[in-house]
Design a protein around this nucleic acid. Structure first.
Length: 592
DNA sequence: AACCGAGGGTC
DNA sequence: GTCGCAC
DNA sequence: GTGCGACGACCCTCGGTT
């Protein structure tokens, strides 16, 4: 008996219906337990919202345009109608589910709906075909076989990679463990070794989890750091235990696997989402190939020239490039800075304490083309503060604190590693526009565009002297500097939604212009020059610190203050003005 | 040939 | 990356 | 502590339009 998409949909609907994780797990576990191997693979894969296994590099490469067209060819529905339904439902899948059986122009061929295998075969086809028309035909073919609204909904959800069932990796692992009576820790361990949860599920079903062994070129989840607000908080968290501090580099986290020598050398670079990016970084591949042996390193790829780490912006031109032209490679050189080693010449080192891994790293990379990030021991608040300010003075993002006795805990955030970032002062901004959200925010105005007063245009236009800026006078113009949603509670969103609805001056699609009235205190990490907003600046990681009900719009900040913050020492996003006069920082790297 | 928007990845 | 919410 | 969902700016690629 093969498993149907309808059954899959029913189970996932049940999981979505409860907010309790244990219940979600139990529902999925029951389902998984009843499936044969092939369907089990697909069920785990689709429940994770993936069309393909995580170690499968293929992608569907279809989006709203193609899926929408395919759906409109099946339903007697106007495009505008579909759009409206999607906004109301927060998602295409749920939008079409409601009208699927009543609006379709002809019944599904065969009438029995789809099996999981049909779906997988359809995805193979979509990925294989080039050209929009061909992909459209394959998508259409899949949807027209969907007999029920729930089937169609889940097809769309999987294609868009988002089931919205509140089930992600964590819940799935627990469900697999429960389904086949395996300890959760064992499931997690095996997934770490072999990569794909669907294969782990198959091994668990065969009661054969012990057969899994680590092999290179299967990326491992990254160990993450939990945020700390201040050195004092961090010191309290460490509670006298002995940690080491490293500079937090502003690049991209990278895991590098390497085997073989010379022409047989093989290098793979994985990012935090476990995607391969070797093609974008040929210079890093060459750098790694100079090191002998088989190994797995963890570290950061940074823009790098003459021993100096450059601002993150330099790196962005490299990201996503399939084959960077020579000019880009020359203008934006990159390098890998190592800070951990997880595997070396047949030995898995993840369970060794950091200090031992560090010794292995020194032995492998010391004195080579791969720099090793320096560590300093820290216990007290003042030691942490010293490390932090030293990092900031080197124009780095802050520090990472690591338990030197701790193992490498893949995917974990708490307990062993902490991060402390530099931050700039906050800005008080005036909201100029509000936007409706998506998904669970579909009924709120949850996204706010905000501005500061432009006191600079006034000055330059009517003042020729370059002495201190004269007192600016009203009316000043508001210029947008950014957008933010995060930082406000559900209650505050409800309150703001009501208010912005009242003071809307015009509406364009999901965006409403609003009368300048509400002042938000905005926190952020960095300021960049940008032409996205009228101010000429954009904020990195903007978040709403609080709503300043006590402030009037006139009390908000001026553009000149934004410019000042942009120029300030903590704003390391600013391009380096000079080809730095100081040579390589002596304390940033070890072993060179 | 130049431009634009969607999609997908980095932080 | 950020944050709030639910567990 | 942990997992999840809803969001920011930036930059790339790709396909369709002008």
């Amino acid at each position: 008996m093969t498993s149907t998409l309808q059954h899959f949909a029913t189970v996932n609907d049940a999981a979505a219906a409860t907010s309790k994780k244990l219940q979600k797990q139990a529902i999925l576990a029951d389902y998984f337990r009843g499936l044969p191997e092939d369907d089990l693979r697909l069920a785990v894969r689709f429940a994770a919202g993936r069309a393909f296994a995580s170690t499968d590099a293929r992608v569907l490469n279809v989006g709203w345009a193609v899926v929408g067209e395919a759906i409109l060819a099946i339903l007697s529905l106007a495009p505008a109608e579909l759009r409206k339904l999607s906004i109301a439902a927060g998602e295409v899948g749920e939008a079409i589910a409601k009208v699927w059986e009543t609006s379709r122009t002809r019944p599904p061929p065969g009438g029995d709906g789809l099996t999981l295998r049909n779906v997988a075969a359809g995805f193979d086809e979509i990925a294989r075909l080039g050209m929009r028309q061909n992909k459209l035909a394959a998508v259409h073919d899949l949807f027209r076989h969907a007999a029920t609204g729930r089937e169609a909904a889940y097809l769309a959800k999987i294609i868009f990679g988002d089931l919205r069932t509140g089930v992600q990796e964590g819940v799935l692992q627990a469900a697999v463990a429960a389904a086949f009576d395996a300890p959760l820790a064992k499931i997690q361990r095996v997934q770490l070794l072999i990569g794909d949860l669907e294969e782990v599920a198959v091994l668990a079903r065969r009661q054969d989890l012990d057969s899994a062994t680590f092999t290179l070129f299967h990326p491992i989840q990254f160990m993450l750091a939990a945020p700390q607000e201040t050195p004092a908080d961090a010191a309290a968290t460490l509670a006298g235990r002995s940690f080491v501090a490293e500079d937090k580099l502003d690049g991209i986290r990278a895991q590098i696997h390497k085997s073989g020598q010379g022409v047989a050398a093989k290098v793979a670079i994985y990012t935090r989402t476990l995607d391969r990016v070797d093609e974008s970084f040929p210079d890093v591949v060459r750098q790694i190939e100079t090191i002998a042996g088989d190994f797995l390193l963890d570290g950061e790829i940074v823009p790098y020239r003459d021993g100096q780490v450059l601002p993150f912006g330099q790196l962005q031109k490299r990201l996503g490039r399939k084959s960077p032209p020579a000019a880009i490679l020359r203008q934006n050189p990159c390098a890998f800075i190592a800070f951990d080693i997880l595997f070396r010449d047949g030995s898995l080192l993840m369970d060794e304490p950091l200090a031992a891994r560090r010794a292995q790293l020194d032995a492998l990379c010391g004195g080579t083309a791969v720099p090793i990030l320096a560590q300093v021991p820290v216990v007290t608040e003042s030691q942490i503060t010293t490390a932090f300010t030293a990092s900031r003075d080197r124009r780095n993002e802050g520090i990472i604190l690591k338990d030197s006795a701790g193992p490498y805990a893949p995917g974990r955030r708490g307990g062993l590693w902490f991060k402390l970032k530099t931050h700039l002062p906050t800005l008080d901004c005036v909201v100029t526009a509000a936007e409706t959200g998506h998904g669970k925010r579909r009924n709120s105005l949850s996204d706010y565009t905000f501005a500061v007063w432009n006191d600079e245009a006034a000055n330059t236009s009517e003042d020729s002297a370059d002495g201190p800026a004269p007192q600016s006078h009203w009316p000043l113009e508001l210029v947008n500097v950014g957008k933010a949603y995060s930082g406000v509670t559900d209650d505050e969103i409800a309150q703001l939604t009501a208010l912005f609805t009242e003071i809307t001056t015009s509406t364009d699609g999901r965006v409403r212009q609003v009368r300048p009235q509400v002042v938000l205190e905005i926190a952020f990490d960095q300021i960049q020059r940008s032409d996205r907003h009228a101010s000429g600046f954009a904020l990195r990681f903007p978040r709403i610190k609080r709503i300043r009900w006590d402030k009037r719009p006139e009390d908000a900040d001026r553009l000149s203050r934004v410019t000042e913050l942009y120029e300030s020492i903590s704003n390391f996003a600013k391009p380096t003005s000079e080809p730095s006069p100081t040579p390589a920082e002596p304390t940033l790297f070890d072993g060179m």
